[in-house]
């Protein structure tokens, strides 16, 4: 079964290789989780914990989930040499770059704890897969062409792996190099494949902010493979990507 809903300001799709009432119920639980994450972390909703922190009006102890995410933000900043930050150039806290991947990863946990091991959870173009698709084969993930958004330019076969892409399309230049405060524009998109979406998503964001250095940085990260598309239509990729082709 497969269900798509608009949550966290983006289309989120949960697909299970299984069907039936139990599958429907667990997918509903996953969407409930995403709604809860959005209520807590959205920078668009004035009542969210993050919005109230930014406004200086939060009058209660931080929820455990927020503390977890903020602590992870510090660790991710260190792991990327400062190329991944949870603060915008204007100083406002914006953990959304981490929250999406983390929310997907937790959602995968919800499915696995209930015995569903064959799934694909995709939120706004980033995804975590478990096991196989309904045909019993690895999940087939297309990489969207950043220069021609209706087009797929690479086909990956992933099982128990995550895929995330950072780029300039869809929303324009939305990733900033935290070190310069300028939009990162050297490359059109960075797609990263690895075991868990949390780190994969952060790595894609950081590599994109690095611009031309991003591909080399990714090549040095253990367990991560990358497909980087330049504005000239040339792709640069790690040799290990072949395991997913």
């Amino acid at each position: 079964m497969k269900r798509t809903e608009l949550v966290m300001g983006m289309p989120v799709t949960v697909e299970l290789a299984a069907d039936g009432g139990e599958a429907e119920a667990v997918v509903t639980a996953v969407f409930d989780w995403f709604v809860e994450v959005d209520r807590t972390f959205s920078t668009y909703k004035a009542y969210s914990v993050i919005s109230r922190m930014n406004a200086g009006t939060l009058r209660r102890r931080l929820p455990a989930a927020v503390r977890t995410v903020l602590a992870a933000g510090v660790a991710m900043s260190e792991a990327t040499g400062g190329y991944f930050e949870m603060r915008r150039p204007d100083g406002q806290l914006d953990p959304s770059g981490y929250v999406k991947g983390w929310a997907i990863d937790e959602a995968a946990g919800i499915l696995e704890r209930r015995g569903f091991r064959d799934y694909c959870i995709e939120a706004g173009g980033d995804l975590q897969t478990g096991g196989h698709n309904a045909e019993g084969k690895p999940w087939r993930v297309g990489i969207r062409n950043p220069l021609q958004p209706g087009e797929v330019v690479k086909l990956l076969h992933v099982s128990n792996a995550a895929v995330a892409t950072s780029g300039t399309y869809e929303r324009g230049e939305h990733i900033y190099d935290p070190k310069t405060g300028r939009a990162a524009t050297d490359i059109a998109s960075v797609t990263v494949v690895g075991p868990r979406i949390t780190w994969v998503d952060v790595a894609a964001t950081a590599a994109f902010a690095m611009g031309g250095e991003g591909a080399e940085w990714l090549a040095r990260q253990n367990g991560l493979e990358a497909y980087v598309i330049g504005h000239d239509g040339q792709a640069t990729f790690t040799p290990g990507l072949s395991q997913y082709l």
Partner: peptide, 13 residues
Amino acid sequence: VDTVSGATQTSEG
């Protein structure tokens, strides 16, 4: 394909 990976499509902004 089963799914596509691409840069974030956001509707809220």
